[in-house]
Design a binder for these strands. Structure first.
Lengths: 179, 179
DNA sequence: AGGTCTATATTTAGGCCTAAACGTAACATC
DNA sequence: GATGTTACGTTTAGGCCTAAATATAGACCT
């Protein structure tokens, strides 16, 4: 059985809370719920696309981060955790899985002390080249119902919201200047 | 260690692909990536908020769906799967966990044949009442950096996108994958 | 130098999920 | 009435993740 494919209408959720519990603070539902539903639909779809290529989304995420970093396709596990938004433990497991499949190698003893460097192997590089366009093209199709102008508007609003949520979550780190 | 807290800048991801692989179809990144990053940040935060109340997000989701449905707080597992956007197997496990904790009960033999009905217990009802405002209020705070007008715009665009993605996934279903 | 602290990465325990295999029960058809 | 089909819910196997417990190895201090 496939995972569910039809998100439940957001408006009905807010209305139901209002009906059942008048005064429930529903103001965030119109944004938070569709964000989760979209993430779920897109994530499920990406997983199915990648399954055909014999890879899982977590592994491709790791390989993609390394590939995008450019030569020499090497990052510390610390950087990998930050760029993937997962815990250090998750990175350790991702790297172990990918290393077992020959997609990356671990190296230590160079540069900063105590850091573990992870480098893409030719096989890992090849896997990215073979799958990334497929995934990105598919997603471009999926959001293609919005006009270019709507896409720009939406991307702009999401960017503002993301930066703001980040600040409110207590991360006061400055990640970007301007723009 | 907590999960990662700072999303990686979306623009840098698209720029990196362009630099490393000119021609990579990056047009969806400005929307898909922030949607995932927001879902991750909001999901992590909700999990931590609920952990203090001794409940997990999957269980509260189940209880909330039942609570919102109104009297007699009863739905079939079929409805639960559709409204939760998870597989039937996941619903079965969610209900089993919640039943073990006395938050719901299962009943069969009524109404449609072969359907299992899940009903909220008083304890389950109480848990929803005790936590849902907390969660929703917190999320309203987190998105509070957008002006009311921006929130309306964003909600509107997300609604359009969601409906459109749903249609495209329905048409363009991926054929079955082995393994 | 030795003990303690600190910063990292890894391992472990436990949770949730998907996909697929199962087990059942109503139904249609012969 | 027997049998194949279909519609469900559950169970199983395996994957990924978080949080916390474990190593480890420099740094710091007395």
């Amino acid at each position: 059985m496939a995972s569910a494919d039809a998100p439940y209408p957001v408006q009905e959720i807010a209305d139901a809370w209002e009906r059942e519990r008048p005064g429930t603070p529903v103001s965030a539902i119109g944004i938070v719920t569709p964000v989760w539903q979209l993430a779920k639909l897109l994530g499920d779809d990406r997983r199915r696309v990648l399954a055909r290529a014999g890879v899982d989304t977590a592994t491709l995420d790791l390989l993609s981060v390394l590939r995008r970093a450019g030569e020499p396709y090497t990052l510390s596990t610390r950087d990998l955790a930050a760029r993937s938004m997962v815990t250090a433990g998750a990175v350790s497991q991702r790297v172990a899985r990918a290393e077992r499949e020959g997609l990356v190698v671990r190296r230590t003893g160079e540069g900063r002390p105590r850091t573990v460097w992870v480098e893409l192997t030719p096989a890992g590089h090849e896997l990215v080249e073979r799958t990334v366009d497929q995934v990105l093209h598919r997603e471009a199709e999926l959001i293609g119902g919005l006009t270019p102008d709507q896409q720009r508007q939406l991307a702009g609003l999401l960017k503002i919201l993301l930066q703001d949520v980040q600040v409110r979550l207590g991360d006061n780190r400055i990640t970007q200047v301007g723009g």
